[in-house]
Simulated assay, not measured.
Amino acid sequence: MARTESTGSTWRYRWAQRQNVRRVSTYRGAETAWRRRDDELRRLRALAADFEGSAAAGAGLPLELVDDEVVLWALPAAQLVEVRHTTVLPAPDLTVAASAAPLRPRRPDGVRVTDAGMAVITSRRLVLLGGRGRRDWAYGRMTGLAHDPAAPVTLIQVLDRRRASGLLLPTDAAADFRFKLTLAFADAIEQRAAVLAQLDELIAEHDQLKPFRPAVATPAQARLSSFVPGGRRTIAVAAGIALLVPAALFDSNPSDPTGGAEVAAAATPGSPPGAPPALLRPAVPAPARTTAPKRTSAPRPSSTATTGPRCGAPENPLGYDFCGGTRIRKPAAEVCDWFDCVPQFWAGRGYLVQCRDGSVSLTGGRAGACADHRGVRRTISQ
């Protein structure tokens, strides 16, 4: 029986099954990462709203509290570090953004450990109750505060000390320590509301990045290029080889071991009859006319580039993302293999955009773009 190319073809069903498995796997991975970050932001928001201390929390600590001072948090394992050289730290701020990379349990260069003990955050100061004594950092005297982005070290500058000092903490406790120190400092300068507003903004921005459940791929969406391993690239390479091989066979004559040198010698005026081809000098071509070099545009990025953040876009080998850049008016033919295209996608006359229901349309910049899909959400760029 002859093979048909209808939607009932077996290869089309296999293509749809592979696409659906890949889409679901990609979606679940993105959703897990998104939900982990969402849970962390909401945990910090709840902690910031209910972060309170009490004088009873300091009972049993060898620390004398002043009037209306309360203990907010205590960590029994901390090390006192001091900077070997004079440095200037940035002014304290209320940033609560999470570190981009996980912290490593190491001590930065130029920092030495001088004591160890318990770190205590109160409503007025940060205190280390060490084996060699007590070290205080009063919030009202802080002039600089810096958290190392790669190590669990926090350095502080105060008015009455020339060199910066701080704490080296366990990696699993560093994030909570930094956040609670920020809350305590914000309370001291009466700016708790600014921290809450910042967390609300981060949660709202993160909600916009929630991945959409992908649409189900159907056999009717399969292209003929999907039937060939490698798709359109394999077809293009095969076509190029098909054109080059006949040309190479035409230029070469396997029955002539001299490669046509004798014929060229016979056609050269003044050449001695019977002279071997090796003794004949090849004709020197006339010098080519020099022309100004053509101006070429900058090379376009490769369609297989996948490096860099995609800002919530699904993983794809086309280099398309939501980060903002060059608008895409002529998308790659396989764009619907990686994004959920709207019906009649190729009838669009605009640039590539994502609609609010998660589908992708080619009507960006035109009136009524994504009209049947709750409007335009954001632009897809390259």
Rank of each mutant, 00 (worst) to 15 (best):
P317G: 02
A138V: 10
V245L: 08
L155G: 03
S6D: 15
P149W: 06
P309Y: 07
P277Y: 01
T32Q: 13
A369P: 00
R289V: 15
G270P: 01
L362S: 02
R106V: 14
R18M: 10
R281S: 07
F179D: 13
D340L: 04
V237P: 00
S226G: 09
N316T: 06
A193I: 13
A174T: 03
L128W: 04
F322S: 04
P219A: 05
A56N: 12
T10N: 04
V88D: 09
I380M: 00
Q208E: 11
Y13E: 09
A278V: 14
A238S: 11
L47G: 05
Y351M: 05
A367M: 12
V237Y: 05
V360E: 02
G8V: 06
A332P: 00
G240W: 03
C355F: 01
P149C: 05
P170N: 09
G319K: 01
A119M: 01
T218G: 04
A101N: 02
E205K: 12
R112E: 13
A194Y: 11
D200R: 15
A164M: 11
A215S: 06
G375V: 14
E31G: 00
A184L: 03
R310A: 10
R378K: 05
T122A: 04
G117W: 01
G325D: 10
E40D: 15
T86W: 10
A265F: 07
D176T: 07
P62S: 08
G274A: 06
Q382G: 07
A275N: 06
L202N: 10
G8S: 13
A194W: 13
A116L: 09
R112F: 05
E64Q: 15
P285N: 09
A332S: 02
R356C: 06
F177D: 02
R374Y: 10
S255W: 12
D160R: 11
T326G: 13
G231Q: 06
R28N: 12
R84A: 12
E64V: 13
P90K: 10
S359F: 04
R295F: 00
G368H: 10
F227C: 03
D50I: 09
L183D: 01
E52Y: 09
R35L: 10
A286E: 13
R45D: 09
F227I: 00
V342Y: 01
P331N: 04
A2Q: 12
R12S: 00
H206D: 14
P273H: 12
R28M: 13
Q191D: 08
D340N: 11
E201M: 12
V127I: 08
